[in-house]
């Protein structure tokens, strides 16, 4: 992957690295949609999953 493309993609992500652990813990401790999403992010395994179940896009 080109470095400029990767850099551009990284710039579009939401980064939590600059936040203090206390701040992160406080945010992730809320039961809001964002708090739960942050929890999921912080709890993700170090090694990438092979695949999780991919939601099938179908209505009946």
């Amino acid at each position: 992957m080109d470095a400029p493309q990767q850099s551009s993609r990284n710039a579009c992500l939401v980064k939590v690295k600059g936040l203090s652990p206390d701040r992160l813990a406080a945010l992730a401790g809320t039961n809001t949609a964002f708090g739960l999403a942050l929890q999921r992010h912080l709890q993700k395994p170090d090694s990438p999953q092979v695949t999780a179940y991919v939601v099938f896009n179908s209505a009946l």
């Binding site: 579009c12 939401v14 999403a37 992010h41 695949t51 999780a52 179940y53 991919v54 939601v55 896009n57």
Partner: peptide, 23 residues
């Protein structure tokens, strides 16, 4: 939730988004 996961740089586990292999 899956788009938010992607915005955090994590895998997106939805057929409609992300790059997780179709299974």
């Amino acid at each position: 939730e899956e788009l938010m996961s992607g915005l955090f740089g994590d895998p997106v586990n939805a057929e409609a988004f992300g790059l997780t292999p179709h299974d």
